[in-house]
Simulated assay, not measured.
Amino acid sequence: MADIEQARAQFDRIDTDGDGFITAAEFKKALAQGGDWNVTDSVAEAVIGAQDANKDKVLSFDEFWAHLSKA
C-alpha cells in the first residue's frame, strides 16, 4: 500500500494549477517532464478515464488515492 503523504505530494506535483484535480493535460505534462514524451492526448485521457470513478474527466485526490492503494 502506498504512503498517503507521498501520494498527496505526488498529486500536488501533477496538479499544476492547484485546483484539486488532475486533468489529462496535467497528467500528460507530468509524464513528459519525467521523460515520457510519447504519451498522446488520447492516451492521457484514457488513463484518467480508467481511474475516474465519477466520470467527470478529472481525478480528485480520493480517486488518485483509491487507485494507488489498490496496488
Score class of each variant (00 low, 15 high):
Met1Val: 06
Ala2Val: 10
Thr23Leu: 09
Val43Met: 14
Lys70Thr: 08
Ile4Trp: 12
Ala66Glu: 03
Asp62Lys: 07
Arg13Lys: 13
Asp62Ser: 06
Ala7Phe: 10
Arg8Ser: 06
Lys55Thr: 07
Gln33Thr: 09
Gln6Gly: 12
Val43Leu: 14
Lys29Trp: 08
Val47Ser: 04
Val47Phe: 08
Thr16Gln: 14
Ala30Phe: 01
Glu5Met: 11
Asp62Ala: 07
His67Arg: 06
Gln33Tyr: 09
Phe21Trp: 05
Gln10His: 13
Val47Gln: 07
Lys57Trp: 01
Glu45Leu: 02
Asp41Thr: 15
Val43Tyr: 14
Phe61Pro: 01
Lys57Ile: 00
Val58Phe: 01
Ala2Pro: 05
Lys70Gln: 10
Asn38Asp: 12
Asp62Gly: 01
Phe11Trp: 13
Ala32Leu: 00
Arg13Trp: 04
Lys55Met: 10
Asp36Thr: 03
Glu63Ile: 11
Lys55Val: 05
Met1Gly: 08
Ala9Thr: 12
Asp12Lys: 11
Ala9Cys: 09
Val43Thr: 15
Asp56Gly: 11
Phe61Lys: 01
Asn38Glu: 11
Glu5Ala: 13
Gly18Asn: 04
Asp36Arg: 00
Ala7His: 08
Asp52Met: 13
Ala25Glu: 07
Glu5Gly: 01
Lys70His: 02
Asp3Tyr: 08
Ile22Met: 13
Asp15Tyr: 05
Gly49Leu: 02
Ala71Glu: 10
Lys28Thr: 06
Asp62Phe: 02
Val58Pro: 00
Val47Gly: 10
Asp17Leu: 14
Gly34Thr: 01
Ile14Arg: 02
Lys28Gln: 13
Ser60Met: 03
Asp41Gly: 14
Val47Trp: 07
Trp37Val: 03
Leu68Ser: 04
Asp36Ala: 06
Ala7Gln: 11
Asp3Gly: 08
Asp17Phe: 09
Gln51Arg: 06
Gly34Ser: 08
Lys28Ala: 14
Thr40Met: 05
Asp41Ser: 14
Ala44Val: 07
Gln33Cys: 05
Gly20Gln: 08
Asp17Arg: 10
Met1Ile: 06
Asp15Thr: 12
Arg8Ala: 11
Thr40Phe: 04
Gly20Thr: 12
Phe27Leu: 15
Lys70Val: 05
Thr23Val: 09
Val47His: 02
Lys55Ser: 10
Ala50Phe: 07
Ile48Pro: 02
Lys28Met: 11
Phe21Ala: 14
Ala44Ser: 14
Gln6Glu: 12
Ala30Glu: 00
His67Tyr: 15
Phe61Asn: 04
Gln6Trp: 02
Lys29Met: 10
Asp3Ile: 12
Ile4Arg: 15
Phe11Lys: 10
Gln6Tyr: 03
Ile14Pro: 03
Ala9Asp: 14
Arg8Thr: 11
Ala9Met: 13
Ala46Tyr: 11
Phe21Glu: 11
Phe27Gln: 01
Asp19Trp: 03
